[in-house]
Design a protein around this nucleic acid. Sequence first.
DNA 1: ATCGCCTCCTGCGCGC
DNA 2: TGCGCGCAGGAGGCGA
Length: 271
Amino acid sequence: MPELPEVETTMRGILPHLKEQIILKIDVLDERLRWPVSEEIQHIRNSPVVEITRRAKYILIEVADQQHIMIHLGMSGSLRICSADEPLRKHDHLVFHLSTGLQMRYHDPRRFGSVLWQAADIHQHPLLIKLGPEPLNDEFSIDYFIEKTKPRKTSIKQHIMDSHIVVGVGNIYACEALFMAGVQPTRMASKVSKPRLIQLRNAIRFVLNRSIEQGGTTLKDFLNSDGQPGYFKQQLAVYDREGQACAKCKSTVKRIVIGQRSTFYCPKCQK
DNA sequence: ATCGCCTCCTGCGCGC
DNA sequence: TGCGCGCAGGAGGCGA
């Protein structure tokens, strides 16, 4: 389940294989992703890759003439660099043929992800234009976070997972950041005290940074672009630890549902 | 404007 | 051992 650190890790993994190389051709083996893969994607055939960046959980591949490919990994997507003679796997939906002779394969069993083509002005794309700041940028400042949180009546957990407020905080990292900041996930956003909000904003950055440093989590089947797992899972303090002892106070980690999502927290440490 | 619910899809783990 | 069921989850979209 790619969250922001997995997407960042994937982006860094494919970067050296793609940058300044030419995408010779693209095989679309199954166009049925979240949005159907458009024929327009063939516009980038024989184009050199200029740059690869990330916005929220979208990987943005810029090719010649400011064209872009936007890739979202959804729930179960991954990108893998491999040699051309490696057999295709079930759920390999797109194959990008590179001028190095290697291939980049988009694999996504649940097909919640997307591969989109955009001519220019990538940041004007409807999927990107309304997004809040990147959590690791200065724009996600303490003052910004406090201002945005003040009027919100939703739970603090749903608030920090709202991409209009800040992007890239998925279910796992929301749980972990709330635990680290000592904030109960069900608490109404507007009622979280200023010092707690400051701690929470810093905790979001801390857990994301730490996970990126370690190459993403390895829940379920995440593998980075070299096929190696990440090493974050052993550091999860509350996520998927229902019934286990809290690492801080030894009381029992609870599981509840907020907005259809499993939510794990320590009732004693998080108020 | 804001909030909360529904939806897409497949693999996995559970109970029997 | 096999079957069937329910759950998991990112995030857009929509109705209230």
